[in-house]
Design a binder for these strands. Structure first.
Length: 533
RNA sequence: GCCGGGUUCGUCUAGUCGGCCUAGGACGUAAGAUUUUCAUUCUUAAAAUCAGGGGUUCGAAUCCCCUACCCGGUACCA
C-alpha cells in the first residue's frame, strides 16, 4: 500500500517534470544545429537572406552550428551559377556558415543531389511499415482527375477517400505491384495519412497548430525520376544532420503536419519548428518579388544577378551601394525587435539579444526609405579610410587621377551627404573634374552686375598667404565683404557656382582648402568667362 | 472553394502573464533652428477610438466568441 503510493507520486512527478527535463537536457548538452536550405533555382531572394540571418542569430546565440544545405532535388529547375551566387552572397553579407556546401563537415555531402542514393531505402522503409505506398498513376491520369473534379467545382485530393480507386500498391495485388516495379514502370511513393487524425504542430512563434489528416493529401515523397521530393529529403537530411531547430518561411507552415507525421513514421524525434512571417512588397500586399524591385527601384537580391537564359539583369544591394552590415541590420528588424528603442545593432549585439519569441507573427512590408536611412547611418559610422577603397574603384572607372591623401580629405567633406556608396560621384565629382556647365537657375539668383570683378578681388585675397591658411583666408574675405558692403550671399554663392557648377556642396572655405588656391583661381576665371563672356 | 496563418500611427514596431497606455520609439511627412548654398544635424508637430462587433472584468490593445479583410498553402516546386 505504502509502496504503491510512493510509486504513484514519483510517476506523477516524472510526468510533470518531463518537458522541463527535456528542455534542460537540450540547454545543457545539445547545442542547436540549424540549417539554411535554399534551392539553386536562381538568385537568393532577400527574404531568404532574412531567413538565413535568423537561423544564424539563433545558432550563434546558443553557441550552436549554422549550416548550408543545397536542396536541388528538382533537376528541372536547376539554374547554373545559383549555388555559387548563394555562397558569394553570404560572404559579402558576412554571415559565415560553420558547415555545409563549400565548407564541408562530418555530415556531408550537403547537396541533396549528391545524397541521392540515401533516400530510396527510407522511402521503401515507409512502404514496408505501412506508412507509404507505391503509386503508378500517370501525370495525365492525375490531371484528368483534377479537371474532372474542377468541373464539379470540387478539388481532387489523393487521400483516404480516393486512394482506393487509384492505381497503387494498395489497390493492386502484391504480385502485380512487384511486377510493375521490376518491369521499370515509373512510380512514385506517396505518404499514407492515417484517417481522420488530428496532427499537432508546435510552432515556436505561433504556438500550437492543429490540422485533421482528412484535409491533407497523400503527398509524393519519392518521384519517378528517382529523386525524393523536398518533404522526404528535408526530413531525412534534418534527421541525419542532427538538426535541432527548423527555422523557415511561413509558406512551409501548411506542410509542417506532413513533416511531423514523417518523423513519427520513422520513429525519429522531430526538431523544433519556427515559421517566420513573410516579407511583403512595399505597396499593396503579397510576397515581395523580383518584379517589385524592378518596378519600385530597389534591389530584391543581395548581389546583382545576370540571368543566362533571358539575359535580364537584376540589381543587387552590393552593386547599388549598400553596406552589408546595413543590409543585415535592416533585414533583422523587419520582423524582429528586441523590445528596446535601439535601431542600430552590430551583428554581435543582435546575436546577444536574439530570441525567437521576439519575432512577430505578421508579414513585414519592405521599406525603401528605411533601408536608405540604415545605409546612411552605416556610412557615417565608417571612417574615410574604410570608405576610400569603394570610392577609389569609382574614380578608377571614371578614369580620373587622385592621391590617397586628397581622396581622404574629400571623403571627410562629403561623407554626410551620402545615402549610398554610389552617391559618391554625384556628390564629389567637382573635386576631381572642373565644372563645364553652371546651373542657370542658381546663376540667375546669385550672379549680379559686377560679380565677376568682385570674384577676382576675392581670388586675390585667397592667394595672399604663402601657404594657404583656411581660417586666415576666411577672415580676410569676410572682412573685405563687410567693409565694402557687398551682398554676401550673392558673391560667395557665385564663387561656389564657379567651383561646383551649382549652389550646393560643403562649406566654401573647406572646399577651397581641399581644391587649392590655384584650382580655385582657374575655376574663378572660367566661370567669369562663361558668364560675362 | 477548402485548410492554415495574420490584423497597434502611411511603414517597421514597443506593448510578454489585463491596471504605470490620456498607446512609446524609429522611418517617412510638416514646421522651425543651424548652414552665406544644398545636404547633414538638432528641435517641435501632425499621425493608430489598438480591423469591426459582442462578451468576461471594478478595469482589455492585452482573455473568450463572431464577422470582415489580407496573406500563405492546396504540384512527381522548393
Amino acid at each position: 500500500m505504502k509502496i504503491a503510493k510512493v510509486q504513484f507520486f514519483s510517476m506523477q512527478k516524472l510526468c510533470t517534470f518531463a518537458p522541463f527535463l527535456r528542455k534542460k537536457r537540450f540547454m545543457e548538452n545539445m547545442k542547436p544545429r540549424v540549417r539554411f536550405a535554399p534551392s539553386p533555382t536562381g538568385p537568393l531572394h532577400i527574404g531568404g537572406v532574412r531567413t538565413a540571418l535568423y537561423n544564424y542569430l539563433f545558432a550563434k546565440k546558443h553557441g550552436g552550428t549554422f549550416l548550408l544545405r543545397i536542396e536541388d532535388t528538382d533537376q528541372t529547375r536547376f539554374v547554373p551559377g545559383a549555388e555559387e551566387y548563394i555562397i558569394e552572397a553570404f560572404q559579402w553579407l558576412g554571415l559565415k556558415f560553420d558547415e555545409g556546401v563549400g565548407i564541408g563537415g562530418e555530415f556531408g555531402p550537403y547537396k541533396q543531389s549528391e545524397r541521392k542514393p540515401m533516400y530510396k531505402p527510407y522511402a521503401e522503409q515507409l512502404v514496408r511499415d505501412g506508412w507509404a505506398y507505391y503509386a503508378f498513376d500517370t501525370p495525365e491520369a492525375l490531371d484528368a482527375k483534377r479537371k474532372e473534379a474542377e468541373s464539379q467545382k470540387k478539388t481532387f485530393q489523393y487521400d483516404a477517400s480516393t486512394r482506393m480507386s487509384m492505381v497503387n500498391s494498395l489497390t493492386l495485388s502484391a504480385e502485380e505491384t512487384k511486377q510493375r516495379l521490376e518491369s521499370g514502370e515509373p512510380y512514385v511513393v506517396r505518404f499514407k495519412y492515417p484517417e481522420n487524425t488530428d496532427i499537432h504542430v508546435h510552432d515556436l512563434i505561433r504556438g500550437e497548430v492543429v490540422i485533421n489528416s482528412n484535409l491533407l493529401d497523400d503527398k509524393v515523397l519519392y518521384k519517378s525520376d528517382g529523386m525524393p521530393t523536398y518533404h522526404l529529403a528535408n526530413i531525412v537530411d534534418d534527421h541525419t544532420m542532427q538538426i535541432t531547430h527548423v527555422i523557415r518561411g511561413e509558406e512551409w507552415l501548411p506542410s509542417a503536419p506532413l513533416h511531423v507525421m514523417l518523423y513519427k513514421a520513422f520513429g525519429w524525434e522531430a526538431p523544433q519548428f519556427a515559421h517566420l512571417p513573410l516579407l511583403l512588397k512595399p505597396d499593396g500586399n503579397g510576397k515581395l518579388s523580383k518584379r517589385d524591385g524592378d518596378r519600385l527601384g530597389f534591389p530584391v537580391f543581395p548581389l546583382e544577378w545576370h540571368d543566362s537564359k533571358s539575359g535580364d539583369i537584376s540589381s543587387g544591394y552590393r552593386e547599388s551601394g549598400y553596406l552589408p552590415d546595413a543590409v543585415v541590420n535592416m533585414l533583422a528588424l523587419l520582423g524582429w525587435n528586441p523590445g528596446t528603442e535601439q535601431e542600430i545593432f552590430t551583428l554581435d549585439e543582435m546575436v546577444d539579444l536574439f530570441s525567437l519569441e521576439k519575432i512577430s507573427k505578421s508579414g513585414a512590408k519592405f521599406s525603401l526609405d528605411k533601408a536608405k536611412w540604415f545605409n546612411h547611418e552605416y556610412i557615417q559610422m565608417k571612417s574615410a579610410q574604410e570608405l576610400a577603397p569603394y570610392f577609389a574603384k569609382i574614380l578608377d572607372e571614371k578614369g580620373v587621377s587622385y592621391t590617397e591623401d586628397y581622396l581622404l580629405k574629400v571623403i571627410d567633406l562629403i561623407k554626410d551627404r551620402l545615402n549610398f556608396l554610389n552617391d559618391f560621384w554625384e556628390q564629389a565629382c567637382y573635386f576631381f573634374v572642373a565644372p563645364t556647365e553652371y546651373s542657370a537657375q542658381d546663376l540667375k539668383k546669385r550672379w549680379k552686375e559686377g560679380t565677376g570683378e568682385k570674384l577676382r578681388v576675392i581670388d586675390q585675397l585667397l592667394q595672399q598667404d604663402p601657404v594657404f591658411d583656411m581660417q586666415a583666408a576666411h577672415d580676410r574675405v569676410m572682412e573685405h565683404i563687410k567693409a565694402n558692403e557687398w551682398n554676401m550671399g550673392a558673391v560667395l554663392n557665385s564663387l561656389r557656382i564657379g567651383l561646383v557648377g551649382a549652389a550646393r556642396g560643403p562649406e566654401l572655405f573647406s572646399m577651397i582648402n581641399v581644391l587649392g588656391v590655384e584650382e580655385t583661381h582657374k575655376r574663378t576665371e572660367a566661370v567669369i568667362a562663361a558668364v560675362e563672356g
